[in-house]
Design a protein around this nucleic acid. Structure first.
Lengths: 168, 168
DNA sequence: ATTTATTTTCAAAAATTATTGAAAATTCGA
DNA sequence: TCGAATTTTCAATAATTTTTGAAAATAAAT
């Protein structure tokens, strides 16, 4: 398989995966393209390579920047902005974990905290089932939270070599 | 907050989260409803409680069964089918991990394996950037794969108490 | 074998989400 | 300050996904 076929394949698969991960296809494709590009690209480059409109590129790059996965680069003497993606997949993962924790897990845990204080007789099986489920999620979430914090703060090599052995 | 408000809140939030997790809102809501219901429910119960059509309930329950998150229950003497969800959140999580690994990670790794064999001169920076990214993902994926396997096979209590300390 | 209850399917409609492209805003050099 | 290059916004449109509901299929009772 030649490079341009391989690139196409990579971009298209990464895009399809994106939809399973709660981000839209195009955003994941832009990310994929930037990850495999040795040099920073302009909006026009992305438009041309992915065949999408300027507005679309602009919005998706902005989102990727919000996620901390893409950086805006200013090249002195150049008028245009360039964009580049983090290429170290460990950093990409920890960044995604960090963001999703903040955007999803943290608010969910806040809600469970409130919901576990629901009024009503704990002897009532409806109340009990509800409280049990909510409490279970709360406890599980607290553990997951800790674990993800440690994971995100740990060093890649330490993690991949040492932690893996501990598990075995 | 009373029980029915709390239930509403839980179902609606779990549904919203579902969309971030790559499953549709309704499927997540049905799952939420079944998780907090002390007894198995029929399709009609779900229709009534979530205000959705029969076809919709039927399809989403089928998907939840495919995911291994919901079971069909036959009560002898009863004509209708009942449905119940796994309530232990640890089991829910490991089940989801198992399925996503199979549906997403495994195929992705197969693809990276192929793409890392792309033709072309490794000195060329376009080729190099591509191969580096793909190889990085491949290695990372292999580690993640192992780790998730261990996680899924491990016992909840062992995991929550022991593994957490190891990380600290 | 027929009727009745229940589940499943799926084409059409509705709702949601993503994309476009042109206008407005911004940035920067002259 | 002006004008050209570039980026950003957003209403309109397109594409996709979800939902409905009625018909077909299935299963159980009589």
């Amino acid at each position: 398989m030649n490079l341009s076929e391989a690139k196409q394949q990579f971009i298209s698969t990464w895009g399809a995966m994106g939809t399973h991960w709660g981000i839209n296809r195009t955003m994941a494709q832009v990310h994929a393209l930037l990850m495999i590009s040795p040099d920073p690209l302009t909006q026009d480059d992305v438009m041309a390579q992915l065949n999408i409109s300027r507005g679309n590129v602009n919005m998706n790059i902005r989102d990727l920047i919000d996620w901390g996965l893409v950086d805006r680069i200013i090249i002195s003497g150049e008028r245009k902005e360039y964009f580049t993606a983090e290429k170290d997949i460990w950093k990409v993962s920890t960044q995604i974990i960090k963001e999703r924790k903040r955007r999803e897990l943290d608010p969910m845990m806040k809600l469970m905290e409130q919901l576990s204080k629901v009024d009503g007789d704990k002897k009532d099986k409806e109340v009990k089932a509800f409280v049990d489920t909510v409490t279970g999620i709360k406890k599980f979430g607290a553990h997951a939270n800790n674990m993800l914090d440690v994971l995100v703060k740990s060093d890649e090599n330490w993690f991949l070599s040492t932690a893996l052995k501990l598990f075995k």
